[in-house]
Design a protein around this nucleic acid. Structure first.
Lengths: 106, 106
DNA sequence: CGAGGGGATCGACGGATGTCAATGTCTGCG
DNA sequence: CGCAGACATTGACATCCGTCGATCCCCTCG
């Protein structure tokens, strides 16, 4: 639901239990090979793709793909835009970069 | 066991099923609030800590902490160095940065 | 050598998770 | 209106995962 926890250095001060849980929820959304492929496919598809574009490349059923996309949307990593019959999924612009910055603060 | 898959852009070309599985194994190691706290605690402890330093802050049993640390070591994110009676865990220098770079290639 | 302590491993259990088939919902078209 | 297609939701099932108590290993010190 919420975007990436954009204020936790991870290195530096120890994470509180709450911050750890929040950050883990985002990381968990990416901790699945299918969801990583979906992110990669959407990015390579011009930043936007509908479910019908993704079902065949990942080789899973349509409900399963739909479920994974929902997980990514709930984690704040993707957006869903329903236009007509199709639902277009797109990456949230800074989300992955924010997460990356939280993981490795130099 | 192996370090972070340091050659997958994630954005750009679509991930293969094998690359996705490899990357997911690393991300999965961080997809737990306890393990995120352990990484954070070790980093804040001067980059090195023994199990006895970590058990009390996370509030879990010693076997559980030991299990989580093993997961992090197996993922290539930490190293284990047994000196005398104590086992010192430390972050692998570039591991988190490598992972962050894979997640958000500009 | 025997005792003590730090840590790893084992076995078990409950909850979370990925997957699919079946079904429901909504949109556009004839 | 009625049908077909694109997605979402539900229910069920198998599996994985985090956690703990009990136990085992190994090092150090009397």
């Amino acid at each position: 639901m919420t975007a990436v926890a954009c204020c936790s250095p991870l290195q530096g001060a120890p994470l509180s239990a709450e911050d750890a849980q929040t950050l883990a929820r985002t990381v968990k959304a990416l901790a699945d090979p299918t969801r990583l492929r979906l992110v990669s496919l959407v990015a390579a598809h011009g930043g936007e793709a509908c479910v019908c574009d993704l079902t065949e490349p990942v080789g899973l059923s349509q409900p399963t793909v739909s479920h994974h996309l929902k997980v990514l949307v709930d984690a704040g990593l993707m957006t869903r835009d329903k236009r007509g019959v199709w639902a277009y999924y797109a990456l949230v612009p800074g989300a992955l970069a924010d997460l990356a910055r939280v993981l490795s603060t130099p």
